[in-house]
Design a protein around this nucleic acid. Structure first.
Lengths: 227, 227
DNA sequence: ATAAAAATGTTGTATATGCAACAGATTTTT
DNA sequence: AAAAATCTGTTGCATATACAACATTTTTAT
């Protein structure tokens, strides 16, 4: 099985393997729920997620956690090209399920090696694109968080999710508890607002399947509650 | 006057000029408060801010605005390497003061030209770095917005600002009204919290000069109000 | 110098939100 | 299959917050 997305876009398995040898790269396996790395502890390595699922999590001083990124195979991570400032708080790369990670040196990525493999450009381009994508995700999260009320945050989030799935129904990528974290609101308060949205017939939630009944393009969704 | 920061890092004026000719690049001037471009209206161009100040602003359906980015000379912008999703909402690039912008084609940046100028790699590397930086800023904003209360948002923002200025005193980059927008909170509510923080002797604000009286590294700043 | 616009500072009020605490459902682990 | 852990759904309550409305100061434009 070989990936053709993310960092592997337009690069064949053959080319990738050659590059990895050229980069003196190595692979590593992690079981589920393992701390793969902690940012801040020196790391000029870039990880390429080949298989599994990774979350990048910030733990606040009070124990609260925020999901910063959600990685799938083909995604890259690493402090150097990280979208995370070397701030005070604890940032950890954690495996959500068993993972295979390929490591390369940051210098190998940005510097052109003497052999000047033609795929190197594609590789850099892909990396650029991935970082851009990451930033886009961050920006979307920002759009959600910049909503004032929980109701607006929910609607904004559901709108975006619906927009991405090209449908008015979609699967939540995580539990409602985690959604509350994602929206940075209190879970119980969020549940209350979800109930109101249901009562207003704006959404329906069955298990993790969400259906929205407002137009996701026109912003007419700022309707009042029925009271 | 020539810049040596941002996209110009490790590239001499001579090299930059040659590259710009090679790229068939052109320059443009904008007066203050001009809409330089609107995202969504096709744009494969990358802008390099040579002189002036630019803000990238999202206008919400209800007229509320959010500052997405704050650009200084040496920064780059453009939808292609933008950190902004091609979402529903209106995103505009606006000049805050008179600006000179150098335009290049995105394809020129990512594709290696036939002449294979050695500075091209540096240029790409710089672009990568700048996007990373942008993402870092977004992520910091995210850290601020993920705080639950206005008080925490303010403290988080001031901590970061203090952290960056390597001092417990720093200049606000914008007005308090704009700060409220940045924090995505109501201005009057923010003013109330600022007053409380002043009463608690945690901060002092004179004009745009902010001084913080809590340690910006240890998170002991979550102190109670005096009541 | 004057007018206009923007920013600051304040207050009252209805409501949304965080917090705590709980029971039941669901999932995961043993 | 039983036990443990997590998730869901709900409620009461104190308080933080959005919203509106206003006076005053400061900045910008003319």
């Amino acid at each position: 099985m070989y990936l053709s997305t993310g960092i592997f876009q337009d690069i064949t398995e053959e080319q990738f393997k050659k590059m990895m040898i050229c980069f003196h790269s190595h692979q590593k396996h992690y079981p589920s729920n393992e701390i793969i790395s902690t940012y801040g502890t020196e790391n000029s390595k870039i990880g390429i997620l080949l298989e599994g699922e990774i979350m990048i999590i910030r733990t606040h001083y009070d124990g609260r956690q925020t999901i910063l990124e959600h990685l799938e195979p083909g995604d890259i991570f690493g402090e150097m090209l990280s979208v995370i400032p070397n701030s005070i708080s604890l940032v950890q790369v954690v495996s959500v399920r068993p993972c295979f990670v390929q490591y390369i040196d940051y210098q190998c990525l940005i510097k052109r090696c003497s052999k000047a493999c033609p795929w190197h450009s594609t590789f850099v381009h892909n990396a650029l694109h991935l970082i851009s994508q990451k930033a886009v995700h961050l920006s979307e999260r920002l759009e959600v968080l910049s909503q004032r009320t929980t109701r607006e945050k929910l609607i904004c989030y559901f709108s975006l999710a619906s927009f991405h799935s090209h449908s008015n129904t979609f699967q939540l990528p995580f539990s409602l508890s985690t959604l509350a974290d994602y929206l940075s609101v209190d879970r119980s308060a969020m549940m209350r607002e979800i109930k109101k949205l249901k009562d207003d017939h704006l959404i329906s939630i069955v298990k993790r399947r969400v259906t929205v009944f407002f137009d996701r393009t026109t912003p007419s969704y700022l309707q009042e509650t029925h009271c």
